[in-house]
Design a protein around this nucleic acid. Sequence first.
DNA 1: GATCAGATGACCT
DNA 2: GGTCATCTGATCC
Length: 196
Amino acid sequence: MFTPVSAKFFEAPTLELSRSLLGQILVHELPEGIVAGRIVETEAYMGADDRAAHSFGNRRTKRTEVMFGKPGLVYTYQMHTHTLINVVSGPVDTPRAILIRAVEPVEGIDLMAKLRGKHMPIKQWTSGPGKLTKAMGITMDYYGHHFTERPLYIAEGDPVHAVAVGPRVGIGNSQEAVHYPYRFWESDNPFVSKFR
DNA sequence: GATCAGATGACCT
DNA sequence: GGTCATCTGATCC
């Protein structure tokens, strides 16, 4: 089955980790079964100096608190009706995080379909940050959990064939940060979220 | 206590 | 392209 990566994996610099997360497997072991998705799109949020980051200016709140912690912690937060999941990036007290924007279903297809509810093409199950958390049963309960621990963890996957880089999605009011090239995805992967 | 904006997505015209 | 669901934090009173 799947084995969690070591904590060491998360210690790479944030932009490097954003790239190396591509191709790795996000696994959730639910009572009803295992769901797993290969990460194909990420976005880096560079903390104190990044106007698009929740932790811009070292803003420390109940929500951003976990970003100041150890790399590899889970940062979940609510966006309207959706849960979004991030990987905290270090070092401690450097509040950076990497948003997982899309995965490619690799295991637990039936369960994912059930969790998504509505009938739709598989390409639409996990091709967006809010979609993938729903398809994988990820909730706010995982805030502060660590990605090396069951039941929610990251396992080693397959290398990506090519990585594309571009500006982040949905941060139009973030002034100078709007065009920072902090979005990474596997070129031509059909599960990458749509451009806007 | 009120109000507003937002790292989204589904559905409508 | 527009609306809105409905949650949390920030910023004002």
